[in-house]
Design a protein around this nucleic acid. Sequence first.
DNA 1: TCCAAACCCTTGGATGTCCTAGTATATTGC
DNA 2: GCAATATACTAGGACATCCAAGGGTTTGGA
Lengths: 168, 168
Amino acid sequence: MGNPLPRDPIADAQRNWERHGWGDVAAPMAAITAIMRTQQILLARIEGVLKPFGLTFARYELLALLSFARSGALPMNKASALLQVHPTSVTNAVDRLQDAGLVVRSPHPTDGRTTLIELTTEGRTLAKRATAALNTEVFGQSGFASQDVDQLIRILGRFRQNAGDFGD
Amino acid sequence: MGNPLPRDPIADAQRNWERHGWGDVAAPMAAITAIMRTQQILLARIEGVLKPFGLTFARYELLALLSFARSGALPMNKASALLQVHPTSVTNAVDRLQDAGLVVRSPHPTDGRTTLIELTTEGRTLAKRATAALNTEVFGQSGFASQDVDQLIRILGRFRQNAGDFGD
DNA sequence: TCCAAACCCTTGGATGTCCTAGTATATTGC
DNA sequence: GCAATATACTAGGACATCCAAGGGTTTGGA
């Protein structure tokens, strides 16, 4: 989408903030902006690896989640909570995965309000192959040094907990 | 969108990865997933602060970029490069900002292909107010410890450089 | 018992992102 | 000088996310 810039645009923004009298929040601004940009880069890599499988990241996440459920099935509201996305996003993803024959919807045995999402055989197979691809092509070459990975997990873990993502 | 989960879903995913024989990439997977989730949380906070101004983050970023340009104007392709988004995304944002009277399009004086985006007076004022709000309500209370901010800037800065975002 | 409140999923609408083309203008090379 | 190539912006389409609203199901208190 573009060639490398001559200079780091986020460092420039940080200098601009300082120059305009916001020196006290320039560093957190830069850190947050860097997180946004890093997410964008990582998402693009992930989507690139998943494209040959006909998957997007949103659909892959759902598939992977189901593949780790003992029964291979989960209620939609559970999936929504675990993936931390809006219920309508799950509806959307399930629609497409179902069209692709990777999951099926089935009624909950005891609660008429709830719909279960269940992996099909093809869905389970594809999840396995896509996971292997992501592991070798993205996570296995993340570009983060080992100790930086630990730092990220620690810093972002604490942040997410403070943000109310999970108790414990 | 949901209540806090009893346990950290990313830590769970990491354990799942290890249990299924991907222990060597489980940590980077967890770090990357944490970045995705953190971005989601931060974006929601930012959008919440900008909503009263009638702005989204995408539009705010463009407005802020223009407000730091000496002349208050930038070619669209420059904005696309600096914000590191697709040109069509800039077109989209400019359409809406122009409808809101915050920017105007004007022809480039010497290059007939190029369109300049220029801040209006209202645009400049709104950018200033929105920046103040973000600084006090988001960046000023990011929830990251000062030394963690430094770590993030360092780790993510190196990552972005290796990813080809900028030279230097 | 039974009705109101709570919960679950889906539809429809607004935004944003990217990709692929298409149109217009500049630049380059012969 | 002119054709071929490159660059800039925009239109249309595919996806994803969220919010608001609606219809069906359960639950809980009067």
